[in-house]
């Protein structure tokens, strides 16, 4: 639908002899706006969902005032509050780095949404190196975290940033290995092809030996989005708030947005790689896609509100001593099964 719309309008544009670069630029702006709006709305829903789920698991009620009985507008009200707050630069902060950090974190977590397939040919841009693009771009925010930690001139923030860097680097490896399994199986780096491969032979999670890859992806994804048991970079009871301890108002909101956007992305990408993306009977493809993504989101939240947090050396050990060897084994196994 997306691509056909592009073609229809584009043809009309060319037929009337208008300069093509205006159309290209306008199309890009429109798509960026679409993604931004979608991400913002998703984050509103996700934050509300997180609060409701945590409340349910903890015998509480959760938000129940703003906008009706179940408090659906609570997040919007909170966002408004953050917008109206004073913008504080801590004394001694590296102002440029401090100012830049939230954007460096936020923009990549928006960019990765480009490749998500909401339906057949319903992605902003189905790059032929889609998976590689995701790996590359989603590794980027950690630079922003280090900038935030360093720029804040706060020891807790520096400790948080160091943890974030260490953790992100170690978990990227098993994450990529898990994705490699899928890529080997599908035989393509293009997200559209991976989905198509699942249409023919069933969802990848049902196919031996990709269950192992799924587990690896799921665990590392939790680490990538800094959720308990891997929430060490922010570890409230240890580092107060970690790298964003000095941020307030809108700048803090950007970190918050990025975190939840990333959470939604890893879940949606999990659904894409292993659960057949938008495929499913009766319901429209986009609905199926959202359903699967939210199922993963809820699972991550459920775990987050149940288990305690690991220690930094245990987190690193878990990755390098268990997940990386497991990932390598999974890749070899996948290769053998594929060649067979």
């Amino acid at each position: 639908m997306n691509a056909s719309l592009y073609n229809t309008i584009g043809q009309w544009w060319y037929v009337h002899g208008l300069p093509p670069w205006i159309f290209e630029a306008a199309w890009m702006v429109a798509m960026a706006a679409l993604v931004t709006v979608f991400v913002l709305l998703s984050v509103l829903v996700l934050v509300w969902l997180e609060r409701k789920i945590s409340a349910d698991l903890q015998s509480r009620v959760g938000p129940n005032r703003v906008g009706g009985r179940f408090g659906p507008l609570q997040t919007a009200a909170d966002a408004l509050k953050l917008l109206l707050k004073e913008d504080i630069f801590p004394a001694g902060a590296d102002r440029v780095v401090f100012w830049l950090a939230p954007f460096v974190v936020f923009v990549p977590s928006l960019m990765v949404f480009m490749v998500l397939p909401f339906g057949e040919r319903l992605a902003v841009n189905d790059l032929n190196l889609g998976v590689l693009f995701v790996v590359a771009v989603s590794a980027f925010p950690v630079i922003g975290l280090i900038m935030a930690g360093w720029g804040s001139n706060n020891k807790y923030a520096v400790l948080g940033a160091m943890r974030a860097a260490a953790q992100s680097l170690s978990y990227e490896v098993p994450l990529v290995l898990a994705m490699v399994c899928v890529v080997v199986f599908a035989g393509s780096l293009r997200v559209g092809d991976i989905v198509a491969a699942q249409r023919e032979g069933g969802w990848f999670i049902l196919r031996f030996p990709l269950q192992l890859a799924f587990l690896l992806y799921f665990i590392t994804a939790m680490a990538e989005v800094n959720r308990v048991p891997f929430d060490l970079p922010e570890a409230e009871s240890e580092l107060v708030a970690g790298y964003h301890v000095e941020y307030s108002g809108m700048r803090f909101a950007f970190f918050f947005l990025a975190e939840f956007a990333h959470l939604f992305f890893v879940s949606a990408f999990c659904a894409t790689l292993f659960l057949g993306a938008w495929q499913g009977p009766w319901l429209p493809p986009a609905v199926w896609f959202l359903l699967k993504s939210y199922a993963i989101v809820i699972l991550i939240m459920w775990i987050r509100w149940t288990v305690p947090r690991l220690r930094i050396d245990q987190v690193m050990g878990f990755s390098w001593k268990l997940l990386v060897p497991l990932g390598l084994a999974a890749v070899v196994l996948t290769g053998i099964v594929k060649v067979w």
Partner: peptide, 16 residues
């Protein structure tokens, strides 16, 4: 103790 170790839910259970 649970909250310090990151298990926020147990905090609420204990208080309950």
């Amino acid at each position: 103790f649970a909250n310090d170790l990151g298990a926020t839910t147990v905090f609420l259970y204990g208080m309950r």
